[in-house]
């Protein structure tokens, strides 16, 4: 960690101007990932712009029935909020499946969207990592890649996105609201995170200096049910080997709406469009659900140590969707 200057922003404008899109500047939210990475030397900011005291810390229903979650709402407050628990159980469950009570009290909504991969090679300065040092190679591809991606990876990067919340956001068609030097814009959550391609150093489509101000949750279809389920190597306080967020709405026994996303499998939360397409209009049976899930995972390309993820994700999603379709 090198010496760093610090500014506590009083407004979004002040924050954006203090950051200025400089590569050596970072917004400081809960710090649970940024401070961790600064200690490891992976992040080396010279300027910290503290945004935790910006007035972006509430959860509010909008006139159109959607819910707006401010970027500095802490994870625990998001998960506990009655609007979220009642309308978006999948979001509440995803948040509560991640990290620990302490970390959720610190981590912010916006920060959760921007957390970096937990790839051990990314975190170790001595290892080749295209995400950390573009062009340096990827030590994980031939290394211990038990935890790495099976979908959408590239020869340049096999890292996974570690967030639980973002998997749920992808499944509910959330929208990310950004403020930046060039004004505000919105990006669908499913397009916010990138696949690595040949630029794995870019986790998201955020532009230099842009600040997440809110996440918008559109109203789910009437009668929709949702659930988040995560498998990890201990019963709590661990990152996902695989996870599934699912939203289903049935009418007269037929699936009318499906939102399905995988976590732990790819560089971004993996929206399972093929699965959704295969489910829509069907009367779900164990076989049809399994087929729909397999349609998505057919394109998985496992690495040496992680072929288990494909079958694990398949059975997990089949279990979650099967159980949701009987309660919907």
């Amino acid at each position: 960690m090198k010496p760093v200057s610090y500014l506590r922003a009083g407004s979004v404008e002040e924050a954006a101007s203090a950051h200025g899109g400089r590569t050596e500047a970072r917004y400081l939210g809960g710090g649970t990932n940024l401070v961790d990475l600064m200690k490891l030397g992976v992040e080396r900011p010279e300027v910290l712009v503290d945004i935790t005291r910006l007035p972006l810390d509430d959860v509010r229903e909008q006139p159109d029935g959607s819910v707006r979650v401010g970027a500095t709402v802490r994870n625990s407050d998001l998960a506990a909020h009655p609007l979220i628990r009642e309308r978006y159980p999948v979001v509440s469950q995803a948040v509560l499946s991640g990290a620990s009570g302490q970390l959720r009290n610190m981590a912010t909504t916006g920060g959760n969207l921007l957390q970096r991969t937990r790839c051990a090679y990314f975190q170790d300065l001595a290892k080749a990592c295209n995400k950390r040092v573009p062009g340096s190679g990827c030590a994980a591809i031939e290394g211990v890649n038990h935890d790495h991606a099976v979908l959408g990876h590239s020869p340049h990067c096999v890292a996974t996105n570690p967030s639980d919340l973002c998997v749920a956001l992808a499944a509910v068609d959330a929208v990310v609201e950004l403020a930046g030097p060039g004004g505000g814009r919105t990006v669908p959550a499913t397009e916010f995170h990138r696949l690595p391609g040949d630029q794995p150093e870019l986790d998201t489509v955020i532009r230099p200096g842009e600040l997440i101000t809110a996440v918008l949750l559109p109203a789910l279809p009437h009668g929709a049910v949702s659930h988040y389920r995560k498998v990890r190597e201990r019963a709590s306080y661990a990152f996902a080997l695989a996870s599934v967020a699912a939203v289903l709405q049935l009418e007269d026994g037929e699936i009318r709406h499906a939102g399905v996303a995988f976590g732990g499998l790819a560089h971004r939360p993996w929206r399972a469009r093929r699965t959704e397409a295969a489910l829509l209009g069907t009367r779900p049976s164990p076989e049809s659900v399994a087929r729909a899930v397999e349609a998505e995972l057919a394109e998985a390309v496992p690495l040496r140590d992680n072929a288990y993820k494909v079958t694990l994700a398949r059975d997990l999603a089949t279990q979650v969707l099967g159980s949701l379709s009987t309660t919907a």
Binding site: R118, D124, K127, A139, E142, G143, D147, F239
Partner: peptide, 14 residues
């Protein structure tokens, strides 16, 4: 890690 001989992911998160 075969390439470096390191205990990889040996902290309390890994």
């Amino acid at each position: 890690d075969p390439a470096s001989g390191a205990f990889i992911g040996s902290d309390l998160a890994g």
